[in-house]
Amino acid sequence: MTEAPFAFDGLDRLFHEKARLGIVTALAGHPDGLGFTEVRQLTGLTDGNLSRHIQVLEEAGLVVLVKGYEGKRPHTSCRLTDQGRARFADYLDTLERVLRDAARATGSVSRTGKALKGPA
């Protein structure tokens, strides 16, 4: 057993912020990426907030922006990098462990009525 079993070091702060979690979750389901407008609509963020959060993710090497044109109109798309996809998967594994541990500690059940089980 680790010294601090509830430290949850794998909860990467880059993903754990609500807006960035929404952005990365949206991108995770679209390996070829999404346009800026699509991400904005899916997350409900303003242009400024979305730009700033994408910048943070881009600086960390988790997303890549591709700027170009669709016809004569400028178009920016965003996609997860391989590193971003792998780190997000690790984050989700840790988050699942958090949920199992919390459910076990509180005796909680899932919305489907099934007991949430942790590792044996």
Rank of each mutant, 00 (worst) to 15 (best):
Glu59Cys: 13
Asp82Met: 09
Gln41Tyr: 11
Ala89Ile: 03
His53Gly: 03
Arg100Thr: 13
Thr94Leu: 02
Thr81Gly: 06
Arg40Gly: 02
Leu80Ser: 06
Arg79Leu: 11
Ser51Asp: 15
Gly48Asn: 09
Val64Leu: 06
Ser51Cys: 00
Thr81Met: 13
Leu50His: 03
Pro74Thr: 09
Gly48His: 07
Gln41Ser: 12
Val98Gln: 13
Glu59Asn: 12
Leu65Ser: 11
Gly48Pro: 02
Leu65Trp: 08
Val56Cys: 01
Ile54Val: 09
Val66Asn: 09
Asp101Lys: 03
Glu96Asn: 12
Gly71Pro: 03
Gly61Met: 09
Arg85Trp: 05
Arg85Ile: 12
Tyr69Gly: 04
Leu92Val: 08
Gly84Thr: 03
Leu65Arg: 09
Asp47Ser: 12
Pro74Asn: 06
Ala60Arg: 10
Leu65Ala: 07
Ala86Gln: 09
Glu59Ser: 14
Ala86Trp: 05
Gln41Thr: 14
Thr76Phe: 02
Glu70Trp: 10
Leu92Cys: 14
Val98Gly: 12
Arg85Ala: 15
Val56Arg: 03
Thr76Gly: 00
Asp82Ile: 00
Ala103Glu: 00
Arg40Trp: 01
Val64Ala: 14
Gly48Ser: 11
Ser77Asp: 00
Ala103Asp: 04
Leu62Ser: 03
Gly44Ile: 03
Asp82Cys: 08
Leu92Gln: 15
Gln41Pro: 04
Asp90Ser: 13
Gly48Phe: 01
Arg73Val: 03
Asn49Ser: 09
Asp101Ala: 09
Lys72Leu: 13
Tyr69Asp: 12
Asp82Gln: 03
Glu70Arg: 15
Glu70Met: 11
Gly61Leu: 01
Lys67His: 12
His75Gln: 09
Tyr91Cys: 07
Thr43Ala: 11
Thr43Asn: 05
Thr94Lys: 01
Thr76Pro: 02
Ala89Thr: 12
Phe88Tyr: 08
Leu45Val: 03
Val64Cys: 05
Gly68Leu: 02
Phe88Glu: 00
Leu99Lys: 15
Leu80Gly: 03
Gly48Cys: 04
His75Val: 14
Leu92Ile: 05
Arg40Gln: 14
Gly61Lys: 02
His75Ile: 06
Gly84Glu: 00
Arg79Lys: 12
Thr94Gly: 03
Arg79Ala: 10
Arg87Ala: 11
Leu92Arg: 10
Thr46Glu: 15
Leu42Phe: 06
Leu65Lys: 11
Gly44Asn: 12
Ala102Thr: 13
Val39Met: 06
Gln55Thr: 09
Asp47Thr: 13
Ala102Arg: 12
Arg40His: 05
Asp82Leu: 12
Leu95Gln: 10
Asn49Pro: 02
Ala60Asp: 09
Asp93Lys: 14
Leu92Asp: 08
Glu59Trp: 05
Arg100Leu: 11
Thr81Trp: 04
